[in-house]
Design a protein around this nucleic acid. Structure first.
Lengths: 120, 120
DNA sequence: TTATTACATTGACATCTGTCTTTTCAATAG
DNA sequence: CTATTGAAAAGACAGATGTCAATGTAATAA
């Protein structure tokens, strides 16, 4: 993953075959480093079909969902699901609570707002 | 990447400490396999900050942008940029046209619609 | 023709990812 | 206490990813 993302600056080309323009200069990018890093992190976490469906289930379900209910939804082993949930947690998309033996996951809706707004 | 994503089905647990419910049954997921695969593919392509900024520049710029204008915006070598553009092309997010020596890239806005709607 | 330019492709490399099995850990059951 | 259960963590492993240098290719310039 790129971590050294620079602030973008337009440096017009100079060497160019006589008289011909390459293209109109691009607009100065609205999405700056930090925002791009944040949104790409969220997009990356959603970039796996199982994780995307996990988020979908958690979003559609009002409240918190037990891992024991999520496991049978997917054809993957329990530790693999746990791994995906951790990725979503690390990206700030979901959080979890322990209650006795069970772990309940829920979406942090604000985590998707920035990416959602940018995509709209 | 998971390619064998099943249609999700809720199979209620049976083994459970006496009398205690794990949680409310989750809703049947609205996002099915194919849709999840498509949206995850798009999200994955956006899951790199350079690619996300590339898409941002191309979206904000009305029209088609020459690669020669994109290269100086980023601190990466030209083949690396070419690689990222190919990823975006493979995901159906952008397309390109050749005109003489130059290659012009542009966003296919419809490619983002499904993910955008799901996130909203 | 020969040189140069714009971009893509190839090959190499270290790192990351998704998956599984095995193990660990905390909480509950008996 | 010990056994069991739900979930996370550790370790292994094949495959993917991001990067760059070098090379390839097609078009233009001289």
């Amino acid at each position: 993953m790129s971590v050294d993302l620079p602030v973008l600056e337009l440096s017009p080309k100079t060497k160019r075959p006589a008289g011909e323009r390459c293209c109109e200069p691009v607009v100065y990018p609205d999405v700056q480093r930090e925002q791009a890093l944040r949104m790409a992190e969220v997009a990356k976490a959603l970039g796996d079909p199982i994780r995307l469906q996990l988020v979908d289930v958690l979003r559609k379900h009002a409240g918190k969902v037990c891992v024991c209910e999520l496991v049978p939804l997917f054809d993957i082993a329990q530790p693999t699901l746990s791994h995906h949930l951790k990725k979503l947690r690390d990206a700030g998309i979901v959080d979890s609570e322990r209650q006795g033996l069970w772990a309940y996951y829920y979406v942090l809706p604000a985590a998707l707002n920035e990416l959602s707004a940018w995509l709209s």
